[in-house]
Design a protein around this nucleic acid. Structure first.
Length: 285
DNA sequence: AATACAGCCTGGACGC
DNA sequence: TGCGTCCAGGCTGTAT
């Protein structure tokens, strides 16, 4: 599932494919819910003729700046991806929105499970302002992170998945960061000691950086798998814990467990990520 | 404030 | 081989 490294890789690949400066000559919406809340016809009419001026990432959103003060926010959710194809290519059954560019290329939003969203708006900040800090923001210091954790009573994993607390983490990199920091996903956020919080922030950045270097994580071979630039991500070999329930912990050899936290499958080593009674309880004050 | 759960979706894994 | 069933999960909305 696309998280920060996969979104950033998708953006880098589009930038390398020189889509900036291209005009959208025409647009076809094949699955209207992909462009909610606009109606398909309104989306097509409003975006046709606009020029792609900038592209960057914020959290898990791809932010396409267009002229006339319009912004296209794209959330890939589970299976969204972009493909550039020559004009006249045969239609892919999972393409949901197709942009005809002015250089005889097609920018196709491909989304098997149809959860992804393309939001065309003049006020992207209404959405982006709800996001928490970027994990790599140099202004996000270890001490701030510790203090923010101390104020919260939720389970640490639920908090890391909360995009308004920190933006860009999803299930895979969350499990990997918690394992690398030796922190049980059910730990109460407020129970983390200062050195644990500091280490967790370091490990979050490490696992994301590894993911970025490897162009993201692709799991399995099927239709729903993550691709960018038509290629698989190479990060699955760098995973230590995610998707490895029943296998041995690479650090201590214990059997990796899978539990559910905040409704998500969560992988952990019961020895490297111990939880104590006080860690699982809400601390007073 | 935190949690749980349904809903949105389909391909793939699994059992028989 | 071919069904049926369940699972995966980011996010939103609703209920507790």
């Amino acid at each position: 599932m696309p998280e920060l490294p996969e979104i950033q890789t998708s953006i880098n690949d589009l930038l390398n494919s020189r889509i900036i400066g291209r005009r959208i000559n025409d647009c076809r919406v094949l699955w209207p819910r992909s462009v909610r809340p606009l109606k398909a016809g309104d989306f097509q009419a409003r975006i046709s003729g606009l020029v792609l001026q900038q592209l960057h990432r914020r959290g898990k959103y791809m932010v396409f700046r267009l002229n006339r003060d319009q912004t296209l926010l794209v959330h890939l959710r589970m299976t969204g991806q972009f493909h550039l194809r020559p004009a006249g290519s045969p239609e892919d059954p999972h393409d949901r929105v197709i942009f005809e560019l002015d250089d005889r290329r097609r920018l196709c939003f491909h989304d098997t499970r149809k959860f992804g969203r393309l939001i065309l708006t003049a006020d992207p900040e209404d959405i982006l302002n709800r996001l928490g800090p970027e994990p790599f923001d140099p202004a996000l210091g270890a001490e701030d992170f510790f203090r923010a954790l101390r104020r919260r009573r939720s389970r640490i994993k639920a908090l890391l998945l909360d995009q308004s607390f920190i933006a860009g983490l999803g299930n895979i990199y969350c499990d990997e960061a918690l394992f690398a920091a030796g922190i049980h996903p059910l730990r109460n956020a407020a129970s983390l000691r200062e050195e644990e919080a500091q280490l967790l922030l370091v490990k979050i950045r490490e696992v994301l950086n590894t993911g970025l270097r490897n162009r993201g994580t692709s799991l399995g071979l099927g239709e729903t798998n993550y691709l960018s630039g038509g290629r698989r991500g190479e990060n699955s070999g760098a995973l230590h814990i995610y998707g490895k329930a029943g296998q041995r912990c690479p650090r201590c050899g214990s059997v990796i467990e899978k539990i559910y936290v905040a409704g998500r499958g969560s992988h952990l080593c019961p020895r490297c990520q111990e939880i104590t009674l006080e860690g699982s309880l809400t601390s007073p004050g």
